[in-house]
Design a protein around this nucleic acid. Structure first.
Lengths: 269, 269
DNA sequence: GCCAAGTTATCATATAGTAATAACTTAAAT
DNA sequence: ATTTAAGTTATTACTATATGATAACTTGGC
């Protein structure tokens, strides 16, 4: 067994249990003991005991016939507790609903989470992909209009560091993988106060984002709108979406308490 | 320290860690070490080590000035993994979106989770309460139209047992606390194929639910719609909502694999 | 019907979590 | 300002608890 940390305050058993939970994702929707063992790198016995415990505690479902484990409703209950804990959600939600009704298009609340964007709340319109309807999805911040709109509010040197080092991932043939281009996009976003991206995560998808700025001008979150380029050209977007998007973002008072970066230790990548 | 279980496969440390996670809810959005200790019943030292570990692993945020812990984005990432693992979600989501656009009102996907209903996906319209916009919320099954619509598909003796023993909770002065009345409601739902409830969770809220039946006729989930009684009388609901609601529920093929009850051990209450 | 792969159960051992205590920090009170 | 209390971090000796190897038992594939 690989020692994880030589700290007396660190409870390795708990960390191992969390590894089991995190073994599940888009492609691993249900796992057997041996698969869990392979993915987590934990030995069979440990996985057996930990998975069994998680099952008893209601944090893993177990198919009685296939003996395969899968995420339980308990995972959604945790999400529910999260929503109450984040003061931004309650402030933003009503305005987001208004916006989605007005536009009739997909509207999201996006937050910076480490070096990624997490869509915390989603109000999907028609013509969206499945993944785009699910809260909790994360994508590299640099790849998204929301991430760019947020980074545009950062002081120059932090912005530069992020553009240089934060991860990129290719989702479509058109995904921008060139950091210089991304730097330009973010510069432009800083000028005009919003960011528009094309074909980054899905082909023919246009992402439009406007940062939610704090009193210091800095943002950790953004209002995001996603439309199809088949139905919306740039002129129409400028005329019929941007004004409302700006209004919405400006109408949401950010979590004023937070003056420094959120500390998402362990949520690297 | 209270012994939790005398099973060699049970990892008490992990269970304690989960207790910490579950200490957070609507009213406990951020907690100090001492508060965590009080709520979980774990001693100070244990809470210190477990919370510290969860923080390092990215499953708890910690405010550096107040030293208070709160749920992290990691909780939403788990929810995201859950959504992929439940095959019903992908089948239902597109139809729910269509329905919400057509009705212009709040639409939910509700599932039976132990003796409660959990709203797994929500497409809120205007005029909803904050809690009603959040996925992962649970309420006693007997209190909701969705729960009643689902129970109406159960065989008589199981239905009766549920009506007798499952929990009730008062949310409004009008919340039905009489089990005989609930039995009648469920009987009616079995006749007409849907359930309508008034003022159960919020005053002036009408809940309308239609079960998603499996090949055996039994349901574990429901499509749910919530409207304001100020804007919708029973006639209009019957004419303008019910037909679409039925169509939607019937158009969603349920998770055919599952033939017996989901086994949500530990999610009692 | 057999074999391979995977899952459950058992158990001696020492590692790894425990709980008590002490050192330190912050906020409140006088 | 100074003191006090409450709460948080750090340390340590101890032993309860998780470990991992192995064995018994299922299940499904051929």
């Amino acid at each position: 067994m690989t020692k994880i940390k030589q700290n007396t305050l660190f409870v390795g058993t708990l960390a191992k249990g969390l590894r089991i939970l995190r073994a599940f994702d888009e492609t691993h929707t249900d796992l057997s003991l041996t698969e869990l063992s392979a993915i987590t790198g934990l030995d069979k016995s440990a996985v057996q005991r930990l998975a069994h415990t998680l099952h008893l505690e209601g944090m893993l479902d177990k198919d009685p016939t296939t003996r395969r484990y899968s995420p339980s409703h308990g995972w959604l209950r945790l999400a529910y507790a999260y929503y109450w804990s984040d003061p931004l959600i309650a402030r933003a939600m009503p305005k987001l609903i208004d916006l989605s009704q007005r536009l009739g298009e997909t509207v999201n609340l996006a937050q910076l989470s480490g070096q990624k964007i997490i869509y915390t709340n989603r109000l999907p319109g028609t013509r969206t992909t499945f993944a785009a309807t699910l809260p909790g999805r994360t994508v590299p911040a640099l790849c998204t209009s929301a991430g760019q709109a947020i980074l545009a509010t950062f002081p120059p040197q932090e912005r530069a560091a992020a553009i240089e080092t934060w991860p990129l991932e290719r989702y479509t043939p058109q995904t921008t993988m060139d950091r210089a281009t991304i730097a330009e996009e973010i510069d432009r976003a800083a000028q005009i106060g919003h960011s528009i991206s094309h074909d980054q995560l899905i082909l023919n998808e246009v992402g439009i984002a406007c940062a939610i700025r704090g009193p210091d001008g800095r943002a950790w979150s953004a209002v995001h709108c996603s439309v199809s380029s088949h139905h919306w050209n740039d002129d129409r977007i400028r005329a019929e979406i941007l004004p409302w998007l700006h209004d919405t973002a400006n109408a949401i008072p950010p979590s004023h308490e937070r003056t420094s970066a959120p500390h998402h230790i362990g949520l690297k990548a």
